[in-house]
């Protein structure tokens, strides 16, 4: 563990994104292939519900991929405003495996940030892909003992090249959120 030096300031506090973040929204940002990315194009969709079972339609959903490496054609980052049912939809390129700590390897995954009214900081999670053989040895998935909990991080195929990962913020089948 590290400690701050006495002269350093801690990182600025987060505050909720609130319900009006759409002023900076650009629907084009949900398509990570818009600059001409190469690779296997997939759709990542999911429905976000809160502890009352209500859709989090006001939320701001972001994704980031460390694979494939971001470049002029692939931004690696996307942002999406869910529809009225709380469903987000990204078009992106399927990631490959990336290194983990030490000599480990991580299964293909997409990082997900969730902001919204009533979320003070952010909720961070990951989407893995059902059926990938590397899931069995992924260092993060390996930390989750309960299969049902682990399943909250694993997107399932829903038609050709469409993967679904629903996110439940609170309660039954609550998504595993990760410290970041």
């Amino acid at each position: 563990m590290t400690t701050l030096t006495t002269t350093a300031l801690a990182a600025t506090a987060a505050q909720t994104i609130g319900p009006y973040w759409h002023l900076i929204e650009d629907p084009a940002m949900a398509d990570l292939t818009r600059f001409g990315a190469n690779g296997e194009v997939i759709t990542l969709i999911g429905t976000i519900t809160d502890g009352d079972g209500a859709p989090a339609s006001d939320a701001c959903v972001e994704i980031w991929q460390s694979s494939p490496a971001a470049d002029d054609k692939f931004p690696g980052y996307g942002r999406c405003a869910p529809d009225a049912t709380g469903t987000f939809r990204f078009t992106t390129v399927k990631p490959g495996p990336v290194p983990g700590r030490g000599n480990t390897q991580q299964a293909p995954h997409i990082a997900i940030n969730l902001f919204g009214r009533g979320i003070m900081t952010r909720l961070y999670t990951r989407a893995y892909f059902e059926g990938d053989p590397l899931n069995a040895t992924d260092p993060l998935l390996g930390l989750i003992d309960e299969p049902a909990r682990r399943a909250t991080l694993i997107a399932r195929p829903e038609g050709a090249n469409i993967w679904r990962l629903d996110i439940r913020i609170q309660g039954d089948n609550e998504t595993v959120f990760i410290e970041i």
């Binding site: 809160d50 502890g51 009352d52 209500a54 989090a56 980031w64 991929q65 460390s66 990336v98 290194p99 983990g100 700590r101 991580q106 995954h109 990082a111 919204g116 009214r117 009533g118 979320i119 909720l123 990951r126 260092p139 993060l140 930390l143 989750i144 913020i169 609170q170 309660g171 609550e174 998504t175 595993v176 959120f177 990760i178 410290e179 970041i180």
Partner: peptide, 17 residues
């Protein structure tokens, strides 16, 4: 109230992602 996880966050050291 309905928008915070009830379960503890999963501790996981930062990786390239």
């Amino acid at each position: 109230r309905a928008r915070h996880p009830l379960r503890p966050l999963l501790a996981f050291p930062h990786t390239i992602t």
